[in-house]
């Protein structure tokens, strides 16, 4: 948990620096996106440090491309024989 605390402290420093600059009206859209991505980052990091399972894109890739790879691999083995 110590590592998480250090990481979050530095994250907060970065975030505060950017948020101060984004206060201007012309950066309203940037501000909204920044807050959204930062919140997502914090939520994911917190869930991760509390060992709550999260779905990752890697699982999706494995689910979509895994069967295709197995098929190609089987096909290559068949050619070899």
């Amino acid at each position: 948990m110590g590592q998480a605390a250090i990481a979050l402290f530095f994250c907060l420093l970065f975030a505060v620096k950017d948020t101060v600059r984004l206060k201007e009206k012309k950066y309203r859209r940037e501000n909204a996106f920044f807050i959204c991505t930062l919140t997502l980052g914090f939520v994911m990091l917190s869930l991760h440090f509390f060992d709550i399972p999260l779905p990752t894109p890697i699982e999706a890739i494995q689910a979509i491309y895994g069967p295709v790879y197995e098929m190609l691999f089987g096909w290559t083995l068949a050619i070899q024989k």
Binding site: T37, G41, M44, L45, H48, T56
Partner: peptide
């Protein structure tokens, strides 16, 4: 300004 939040997210995905 997206560099930092995206890096945070990638840290979780990596692990």
């Amino acid at each position: 300004l997206f560099a930092f939040p995206l890096a945070l997210i990638s840290m979780v995905i990596a692990d």
